[in-house]
């Protein structure tokens, strides 16, 4: 969403925040959602919008360390907070172990829900390095994938847990 400054209303707010460790400052309408801010204002488009009502999980970002739905948060609520998106996970060509595990286990097809899943799994494994199948299913129940049928995603999470435990 590009805001055309000539045409926005005069009721605007300053938002200062960090996204993936980089500080940004923008003047926005208070109604602008966080996901539209990240994607449209900052041009960081890895975070996707699947439902715009907080159900599908595609827009999941890490907000001060916790996963949140950026489609039902406003950009102004992120003022002086820190946000991490999927773009923070890998450095250059080097995939994060969770991304590597998704790749090796065919844990994605169209790729649209994937950024939300990756960040949800990152959060899960930071709290629970060795989750059971049931725990994985519970934790992923807030993210919808319409392509894979979840089997390969669950396999990927188990593989990722092994990779991450080895790293430590």
């Amino acid at each position: 969403m590009v805001q055309d400054t000539k045409h926005t209303s005069n009721k605007t707010r300053l938002v200062k925040l960090t996204v993936n460790g980089v500080a940004y400052e923008r003047v926005v309408e208070p109604r602008l959602t966080l996901v539209d801010f990240i994607r449209g204002e900052l041009g960081i488009t890895g975070t996707h919008v699947g439902c715009e009502h907080g159900v599908c999980g595609a827009c999941t970002v890490i907000f001060d360390g916790y996963p949140v739905r950026s489609c039902i948060m406003l950009a102004v609520q992120a003022h002086s907070h820190s946000v991490q998106t999927v773009e923070s996970m890998s450095t250059g060509d080097q995939l994060h172990p969770i991304q590597q595990a998704f790749w090796e286990n065919f844990g994605l097809q169209c790729g649209f829900c994937t950024p939300g899943f990756l960040l949800t799994v990152q959060d899960l494994l930071s709290r629970n390095p060795d989750p059971t199948d049931t725990e994985i299913r519970e934790e992923l129940s807030g993210n919808i994938c319409r392509c894979t049928g979840y089997q390969s995603i669950i396999a990927a999470v188990k593989q990722a847990a092994i990779y991450m435990r080895k790293e430590e």
């Binding site: 890998s90 998704f102 790749w103 090796e104 790729g111 950024p115």
Partner: peptide, 21 residues
């Protein structure tokens, strides 16, 4: 073999229609 299109999707570098300006 691992899917060739996946690396861009995994890194948030896919180019879906709403990513274009």
């Amino acid at each position: 073999i691992k899917r060739l299109e996946d690396k861009r999707f995994l890194q948030g570098q896919g180019n879906y229609i709403d990513d274009m300006q």
